[in-house]
Simulated assay, not measured.
Amino acid sequence: MNLSRFVKHSNINLFQEGNIRCLYDADLLNDFSVEMFDSSYWQQQNAVLGSSTGRGTAWFVQHPQVKMVLRHYYRGGLIGKLINDSYFYTGFMNTRAAKEFILLSDMQLMGLPAPKPVALKIERQGLTYNADILIELIPGANDLVALLTQTELPEQSWQQIGACIKAFHQQRIYHHDLNAHNIMLDSDNKIWLIDFDQGKQMASEGPWQQQNLQRLQRSFLKEQKKLPVFHFSEENWQSLLQGYSS
């Protein structure tokens, strides 16, 4: 596999063993091993910081050089009920993990507030593969849903959220699942976007930008109906749109 695609990025190395291929940032993982994609490895090291459960379990782990999120790729929707985590293999660079890794790497060069990719693993089984990824954990960050169940956000924060989304859209970055869980605020109140699985850089601006915003608004309204306390209002949404437009 040609790694020239990554020359402009960090010190990206290739690991191959049998039917397993990995990419990793040697500046962040100078002691890389394939076992790092197994949560039990981190448990044995007493290095698990926590976890979150969605489609699958994401593990927050502590490496001496970097705190990371370990995530396995699972299928969603109806097909996910039949096929849990296998994908048809059409080439390494076409895998979900490689595409997300590349996009995250590119966004680092653009200066966008998205987490750094650290490593990925592709394991083939004949015509299919499954995948894992390690991504830098954003220190001191909470997602919007967790925050809005506890407190109201000031108008300025809503405007900053809108401005953050606009910064990604100006670089033609499409977020496949822009929802309230995938927007983070860190301890300095900086806004971040996470989870760029199936995201991509679009060829041009277009309806996808408005569709991103509409999806986010539906996410807020869904959480508002579901949760007993959720500090979100139409005024908050208008502040977000004001930040997006400014």
Rank of each mutant, 00 (worst) to 15 (best):
V145Q: 11
E223T: 13
F232D: 00
A180T: 04
F168H: 06
H181V: 03
T149I: 13
N236Y: 08
I135W: 00
K81Q: 15
L153K: 06
N179E: 06
V118W: 00
L213Y: 07
P113Y: 06
H181T: 06
L216M: 03
L49E: 08
E155H: 14
F196D: 00
D31N: 15
T90G: 08
Q44D: 14
N236W: 07
F220T: 00
Q160A: 15
Y74L: 10
Q156I: 14
M36Q: 11
L134H: 01
I83R: 10
R124V: 08
L23I: 12
K225S: 10
S204P: 07
M36G: 04
Q150M: 14
Q156F: 10
H72R: 08
N142F: 13
Q160N: 15
P113E: 03
Q198W: 09
L178H: 04
R71V: 04
K81Y: 14
H63F: 09
Q170F: 09
Q210M: 08
S219F: 04
Q65P: 10
E100M: 01
K81A: 11
A203K: 15
Y244P: 10
L109R: 12
V34S: 14
F6M: 08
I79L: 11
G56S: 10
D195W: 00
A97I: 01
L153C: 11
S157V: 12
Q65M: 12
F232R: 01
A146I: 09
F101E: 03
I135V: 14
H72N: 00
L78P: 11
Q65Y: 12
F196M: 02
N46F: 11
K166S: 15
S105R: 02
N236G: 08
L147F: 07
Q171G: 07
I161W: 04
R215G: 12
T95R: 03
R5Q: 12
V7E: 15
G243H: 06
S52F: 11
I138P: 07
A58Y: 06
V118Q: 02
L153S: 04
S33G: 11
A180Q: 02
A114Q: 07
L185S: 02
G162I: 00
Q171C: 11
S52K: 10
A58C: 15
F101N: 05
F220V: 03
D27V: 05
Q44C: 13
L227C: 12
G140W: 07
L82E: 04
L109W: 10
S39Y: 12
P207T: 02
E155N: 15
R215M: 06
N189A: 12
L82H: 05
A146G: 14
F168T: 03
L241T: 12
M68D: 00
C22L: 06
D38M: 13
S233E: 03
N179T: 02
R55G: 11
F92S: 02
S4C: 12
